[in-house]
């Protein structure tokens, strides 16, 4: 079952002094996210990620097109009790404590009074904020605020969670915590749609990713497939202080780092390369095929459309479409 269906959603703004110029913020977007899926929406700053999320949240209104969440139109009031949303760089009522804020959001989300306080405490404990629960949010660090933000998004147990740049501005520890939380949401069967420009986060968490650039969806693909595709090359790592001459003649691109050499060469030269190492009595550390990375796919998709027409990159056309 589809959790989110985006059907040619489009947004443009009138700009200029006379508002006569039309600036597209999102070109017609067609995308389907399945229930239980973790979907990463990737793109550089200003690509249209936040606009898409705001359209889905009803914060801005589409110029054309529509979207459905859990089978309901986005302007259907019932949708709101089934979704959670963390905006980019969230700012909360800083005169409230974390406990008061979550209680307020719980009230607005319709969490029953009976059990609300316990739910708030449980959630604060889950993100490690029990000790700071009574402190005003103006005294919170950015990482703590982000944790509060995540907590408010899932407090009312929504089925679909939207996160806008959830790792933005966090230190490595904070990012790890957010990753863990998203993985917990996956294990609870929730659908997570999150935007990010940090590719490693998307690679570690997402089932599928969509690449958006200049308001246009450039491609959708399964992370597992994208990153499992081999490129016909192998990477050999071994102990040595210089690159053996035999290896260079096999067409290897090698670099020395201390006492370790890292060499990449065509797959068909793999046996010959191993023979060189045996001959030179060098100790092998690892040998593995070179796989595509999400970064390569991302960069490829960000290239201008005209330069992409000659290529036929791997795409998952079942659940998304290149517009």
């Amino acid at each position: 079952m589809a959790a989110i269906e985006i059907l040619d959603l489009e947004k443009s703004y009138r700009v200029g002094f006379w508002r006569s110029r039309i600036k597209p913020a999102l070109r017609p977007l067609r995308l389907t996210i399945e229930a239980g899926e973790i979907f990463g929406f990737l793109g550089p700053n200003g690509a249209g990620k936040t606009t898409t999320l705001k359209l889905l949240m009803g914060l801005v209104f589409p110029t054309s097109g529509t979207a459905r969440i859990l089978g309901m139109e986005i302007d259907d009031p019932r949708v709101k009790s089934q979704i959670g949303f963390l905006p980019e760089q969230p700012y909360f009522y800083d005169y409230l404590s974390a406990r008061e804020l979550l209680n307020y959001y719980g009230q607005l989300s319709g969490v029953p009074a009976k059990g609300r306080a316990a739910r708030v405490e449980q959630m604060l404990g889950r993100v490690g904020l029990s000790d700071a629960a009574g402190m005003q949010l103006r005294k919170f660090s950015k990482g703590m605020l982000q944790r509060v933000g995540l907590t408010q998004a899932i407090l009312h147990e929504p089925k679909v969670v939207f996160l806008d740049e959830p790792m933005s501005g966090l230190d490595p520890m904070g990012r790890r915590e957010v990753r863990d939380l998203i993985q917990q949401l996956r294990s609870e069967g929730k659908t997570v749609f999150f935007s990010t420009h940090i590719l490693s986060d998307a690679e570690a968490l997402c089932d599928r990713v969509g690449i958006i650039h200049q308001g246009e969806l450039r491609g959708v693909g399964s992370v597992a497939e994208l990153t499992s595709e081999t490129q016909g090359k192998v990477e050999i790592i071994f102990y040595a202080e210089r690159v053996p001459a035999g290896l260079t003649s096999l067409g290897a691109e090698a670099r020395v780092s201390g006492e370790v050499v890292n060499a990449v060469l065509p797959e068909e030269q793999q046996d010959a390369a191993l023979e060189v190492l045996r001959r030179e009595r060098l100790r092998l550390i690892s040998l593995a095929p070179v796989r595509s990375s999400l970064e390569e796919y991302y960069i490829q998709k960000l290239k201008p459309a005209e330069s992409m027409t000659a290529e036929k990159p791997k795409e998952d056309n079942r659940k998304g479409a290149v517009v």
Binding site: K54, M57, G58, L59, P77, R78, K80, S81, I83, G84, F85, L86, P87, Q89, P90, Y91, F92, Y93, Y105, L108, S109, G110, G149, Q152, A153, H156, F162
Partner: peptide, 10 residues
């Protein structure tokens, strides 16, 4: 932007 987290609720 405090409104975002309010209006994304019912």
């Amino acid at each position: 932007r405090t409104l975002y987290t309010v209006l994304s609720r019912p």
